[in-house]
């Protein structure tokens, strides 16, 4: 971690952030221009409501995620994580897929937790399976998806969890074969210091007493909120700009073909970046118009990858790995959705 590397990383990160901010505001300007006879103030008001809606709904989940992450940093030692996991790499990866039930986080919160666990010595394959699956494999999403689809379309409810488990485990296993942490993570994330706290480095992680541990967890969570919050905010800005810009009708017109519908829903999942705990209700609005396979792909792919989680991945993994983490789930969910549309009658 020479000064040059960190400077490059820093400059690259800053440039990415500012480019995206610029894009969001360009989108706003376009929205204002396209708004049929509507003045900029109205557009800005609608944009603001949409942005704050996403932010207010998502921020508590992000906070819970960073808090879980801080608690893990303060109280969980490397030995704990390793002890919990099966020795067999395949079984361990499966464990990663279902670990979300122990760390209930949505896709806003999963990245900080996964990042912490990596620095605690979690194997890559397990961490990646966790990263992909946890936003779906948790009690909150289980309940919300059941409420949305349990009676109307049990196939979507079951399909979401089965497909998520399959894809997450498969991607985890790809990383089990191929990757060492230093090939995958951005340099600062496998170093002992992270999250900007030098104390973490100097403390050789004996278990902390409760109160100092809690204070440490809160400090860590505060740092992490700023680290991760910017991605949530930029993602929400983009999503709100898109919603204010693109008419839903245009998207819907694309939607009945067995292939096109899946592509459209996955793009929509990526762009909308709606939290995994509530995306089932959003999907409900498409039940009448879109193919069942496309909805299952939407509910599987969206929690794994969307605008804001991609931005968060970029803070943790190197660029090549980010590309894998976006493209692999996209292709797997796409083929699964198309296959279901062509071969299953729901």
């Amino acid at each position: 971690m020479q000064a040059t590397t960190s400077l490059d990383v820093k400059r690259y990160g800053a440039r990415l952030v500012w480019t995206l901010l610029g894009l969001a505001f360009t989108g706003l300007v376009f929205a204002a221009a396209l708004g049929t006879g509507q003045d900029a103030v109205t557009i800005l008001s609608i944009f603001s409501t949409r942005f704050l809606g996403i932010f207010i709904e998502a921020a508590p989940f992000l906070l819970l995620g960073t808090l879980a992450s801080g608690v893990i940093e303060a109280f969980v030692t490397q030995a704990d994580v390793v002890r919990w996991l099966p020795r067999n790499p395949v079984l361990a990866t499966l464990g990663g897929t279902f670990m979300g039930f122990a760390f209930p986080v949505c896709e806003c919160g999963v990245v900080p937790v996964a990042r912490r666990l990596f620095t605690k010595g979690l194997p890559m394959s397990v961490g990646v399976a966790f990263l992909m699956a946890a936003p779906v494999m948790n009690p909150v999403v289980l309940v919300s998806t059941y409420i949305a689809f349990g009676t109307i379309s049990p196939a979507i409810f079951v399909g979401r969890f089965v497909l998520t488990a399959l894809i997450a485990t498969a991607i985890g296993l790809v990383f089990a074969l191929a990757a060492r942490p230093q090939d995958v993570l951005r340099p600062q994330n496998f170093a002992p210091v992270m999250g900007g706290s030098a104390e973490a480095a100097s403390t050789p992680a004996p278990r902390r007493a409760l109160l100092p541990g809690l204070i440490f967890a809160l400090k860590t969570a505060g740092d992490e909120f700023f680290e991760m919050g910017r991605y949530l905010i930029i993602g929400s800005l983009l999503a709100a700009a898109m919603q204010t810009l693109v008419s839903q009708e245009v998207l819907l017109a694309l939607g009945r073909g067995p292939v096109v519908s899946v592509l459209v829903m996955q793009m929509l999942a990526f762009l909308l970046s709606v939290c995994s705990t509530v995306d089932a209700f959003l999907a409900l609005a498409f039940v009448g118009t879109f193919t069942t396979g496309s909805l299952i792909s939407f509910l599987t792919f969206g929690p794994m990858v969307d605008i804001k989680s991609t931005l968060m991945f970029a803070g943790v993994f190197n660029r090549r790995t980010v590309a894998y983490l976006v493209v692999l789930p996209f292709l797997m969910a796409l083929f699964a959705g198309i296959w279901m549309n062509l071969n299953l009658s729901f």
Binding site: V17, S45, S48, S197, K219, F226, L237
Partner: peptide, 23 residues
């Protein structure tokens, strides 16, 4: 505390507060 948060990041994090209070 060693947690310098850069000005751009602080600005981005302030966006929800700005939009929420100014509009």
């Amino acid at each position: 505390n060693h947690d310098h948060v850069s000005w751009p990041v602080l600005f981005i994090t302030a966006i929800p507060l700005l939009l929420g209070t100014l509009i």
